[in-house]
Design a protein around this nucleic acid. Structure first.
Lengths: 342, 342
DNA sequence: TTCTGAATCGCAACCGATTACATAAAAAGT
DNA sequence: ACTTTTTATGTAATCGGTTGCGATTCAGAA
């Protein structure tokens, strides 16, 4: 309603009988302005309730001090901690964040990218959607020289900088652990093999089988779409296998939790009948019963590193075009869902 | 790298031998521009790779077509669905969104508010942090006439418009259900009673006890801080009660899930020894064992309604100052965690 | 007292789009 | 053929900061 006129540096200048340029410089703590003048300006700013106009500033400077973020979903503790990491670093460096999510759809991902591009973010940090195939919608950024860093879900196109974990090794660790527990017939429930993370985890799974002389049975590979419904049908698909597998590597904790529920409803005991290993160490992995063995890696670190590299590049202290892949540490957390020995 | 100069409407005008004003009007589909000219403009726009400059536009129009959102956390399916609802409505209406989260801290909430204020969002939708007390940090919006709508976690200060559920009734329903299951000694694990939602749910709990002639024992009221650690100590606190309660109304699904885990570890059977009702129908409520009885309400609806009212106000078709409280439908979903009868 | 350089500050031209107002051209009316 | 509308486009001011360059002031040196 009310909304008195906005006060500008011109209003302040007039009241102080100085020029707007001086006010502007005073506000930026420019060395050419005397302390006395700065103090008078800052007092008048408070008195008149001035707020700077980002638009005028950005228009002039062609720089927004804003970083765009695109994630595939918000509702996992992993993503939340990545965001926390990005936020910590960028806030300290004086950058704002615009966070968007694609709901696992390329279409929305592209729309978000376009939007952030028009908002003229100084840089972009993104994790790809489930069905993203190709990086065309990020081309405009590359063309205008706006730096882009991908994390976790990335596209292996060689050109862009990525922050990831060693998914092959993780898949190997998980599968190897199941083998050590005595599993002979290990299934792999994972998601679209077009997504790097799932393809690589699956490769690790295969490698581990191979190294232990176990055959790879393609009937034991089940592709899931990460939804609750999808997880249920993946579980049912497992139940139809004859003989049943004695271990499953499921590359997503939520899916693993849903599967466990279905298995238990069908009278299977975990881990006795089927040992299970999940992925991501999501909050849910500790709450299901039995607690879920899973792969843990620090979202916070991943976020911080991505942000730090991006900002380093923006400020000219480093250059992301010299770095191609940054690998974060990851580990297997063993809980009851996979401990056959007892 | 590269980054050729940005192309502006002046460049387009020059190439087409028309004035920038015509280009601007053509881009806005202004009726005073002929179809022929519009076509030429749009072709040249594509050819030259023009992108409009939001800053120049906003500077001139003093309007951003952007709505700010502040939520307390991102990692719950409830909040995610609220965001989806807000997004649906605002995208259709042509508004952009800037989503921020306060990590349950007033301090960050205030910082976000300040930031969004300086970014000059046209309106604000917010759910308060855990420890927010007072709405002072939203004053600037009110003063400048920027509309603000709160949802779910709100402050009852009479002045602002809120979108909520009937928390008292929900608390009543939950407690009443436990009583119907034969519980005589019902605890209430909830969070800070300064937060409207928890205070009201607790009131519903008390009302239900009273209506059934059950005494209110303040030892059965446990205040939790919503963290995992907090939930664990809340559960341990329950275990120290003598005699043990035979039912608990826990006003948060995550906390309920953690508590259930602790109880089970201590040999209690759910619901036989302790019946439990949670709140929010989070994804986790279906995955724990036994499945958790809980209160369900549509985050999607809440988000859509909040956004629709805000935008309606911005476009002048409605006025949020005429509406004070909007109440969303809610329901009790009964699952095994509370079914003593079997 | 005069001169010199550092310390301060002002002038005015941007940044790119929007829009009230004026104008020119084309269509319609008499 | 001439005036009146209508249609289509141009002119120029404006939004609020930023900044290169020039001007002024003043203390200290000569």
């Amino acid at each position: 309603m009310s909304s008195d006129k906005e006060v500008t540096i011109y209003d302040i200048a007039k009241r102080l009988n100085i020029s707007p340029a001086t006010v502007s410089r005073g506000l930026q703590d420019h060395p050419a302005i005397s302390k006395k003048t700065k103090k008078r300006i800052s007092e008048m700013v408070d008195e008149m309730g001035y707020r700077s106009n980002h638009f005028a500033r950005n228009l002039r400077q062609k720089q927004t001090n804003t970083i765009g973020v695109i994630v595939h979903e918000l509702n996992s503790s992993f993503i939340t901690s990545v965001l926390a990491g990005i936020e910590k670093v960028s806030t300290e460096a004086g950058y704002d964040l615009i966070i968007t999510h694609s709901s696992e759809s390329v279409k929305k991902e592209a729309a978000n990218a376009k939007n952030l591009f028009h908002k003229r973010v100084d840089g972009l940090i993104a994790s790809l959607a489930f069905d993203t195939n190709g990086l065309d919608h990020f081309k405009p950024f590359v063309q205008k020289g706006v730096p882009v860093i991908f994390f976790d879900r990335v596209e292996q196109d060689g050109d862009s900088t990525v922050v990831v974990i060693d998914n092959v090794q993780c898949g190997y660790m998980a599968t190897n652990h199941l083998i050590e527990q005595g599993c002979k017939r290990i299934a792999n429930i994972t998601s679209s093999l077009n997504r790097n993370v799932y393809a690589q985890r699956h490769k690790g799974y295969q490698d581990a089988l191979f190294d232990h002389g176990l055959p790879f049975d393609k009937n034991l590979l089940i592709i899931d779409n990460l939804s609750e419904q999808g997880a249920i049908s993946s579980a049912l698909q497992v139940l139809k296998l004859k003989p049943l597998p004695d271990g499953i590597f499921i590359t997503n904790d939520f899916v693993a939790a849903v599967c466990m529920k279905v298995f238990k409803e069908h009278g299977l005991r975990i881990p006795e009948d089927i040992a299970i290993v999940g992925f991501n160490n999501d909050a849910i992995s500790k709450l299901v019963e039995p607690a879920l063995t899973t792969i843990n890696y620090s979202g916070m670190d991943m976020g911080m590193i991505a942000a730090r590299n991006l900002i380093g590049h923006l400020e000219g202290v480093s250059n992301i075009h010299h770095t191609n892949t940054i690998v974060i540490r990851s580990e297997l957390i063993i809980r009851k869902s996979s401990l056959k020995g007892g």
